[in-house]
Design a binder for these strands. Structure first.
Lengths: 138, 138
DNA sequence: CTCAAGTCAATAACTATTCTTAATACCGTT
DNA sequence: AACGGTATTAAGAATAGTTATTGACTTGAG
């Protein structure tokens, strides 16, 4: 996700209205590296916006995903996690505490992925998911 | 998934009974590289076993996953795909035809992933998902 | 063959997400 | 500052893939 100003500028230019609900979700996500679920976002924002609806959280997340400001991650069976990261990166999932840790290219010099084609198929994007035990659980 | 004999041997040794339904699912999956969903497996086997139940397909798949004979893949939003591959490999997902293509290490010499630790987290497994256009859709 | 343990089919239940609807709030225009 | 068209909201119903429940049936060890 870009800065607050950049993000709301993009919303505006795409014709979306700036509602307090949307702004609160955006503020919640900027700089958030915890990969929250929709349920967690809803629960946390509900304190400040008691009338907030679940649908609104989902609608906002879907909208932000459509314009590329967040990414949904299918790392677990039953729910999605949302990642406000915009630059390409990978993820580490701890099998003990289930935390999701961003792995940026600068910290992953040993990760090298092909570009262009693989077995005749044209690659447009690639994502790596590591699983194991995180540093805190070790 | 291993050979038919090896797989049913593992079932037997784990204390599972060998029922015609389970054998049919196992036979269906061995050598199958199409990454079928539970729904597709059910539909196909229903012709030969008209009394087959959806639960049985799911139960069998979950059992096979528990003993490591299949792997469930969360590549799409609304359903799981099942992969009888046992050796480590990656996947290519076509955004046009939605097909899932196995990418084995021998075909992916440009893929290199770290082993051991990354940023202090201990890696136990790693999976790459490529997205793009498959050779047939190009 | 017998019988207990395990499995089956049918269907109800579950849960994350999406859809529906009437009421509301945003914002360009006045 | 107020208006009005229209996108958005809140609440709850609906959806769909998967899992759990239940009572009858089957498997396979002894």
């Amino acid at each position: 996700m870009h800065s607050f100003e950049t993000t709301i500028g993009r919303l505006r230019s795409e014709g979306f209205k700036l509602t307090p609900q949307r702004l609160s979700v955006i503020r919640y996500l900027i700089g958030n590296t915890s990969h929250p679920t929709a349920a967690v976002i809803y629960k946390d924002l509900k304190r400040k916006y008691p009338s907030l609806s679940f649908s609104t959280v989902y609608n906002t997340l879907n909208m932000l995903e459509k314009i590329g400001e967040v990414q949904s991650l299918h790392l677990f069976d039953d729910f999605l996690n949302y990642d406000p990261g915009t630059e390409a990166h990978h993820h580490f999932v701890c099998r003990s505490c289930n935390s999701i840790i961003d792995i940026f290219p600068r910290d992953a010099e040993n990760v090298s992925l092909p570009e262009g084609d693989i077995s005749g198929n044209r690659i447009e994007s690639a994502q790596v998911v590591f699983k194991g035990m995180c540093r805190n659980c070790l």
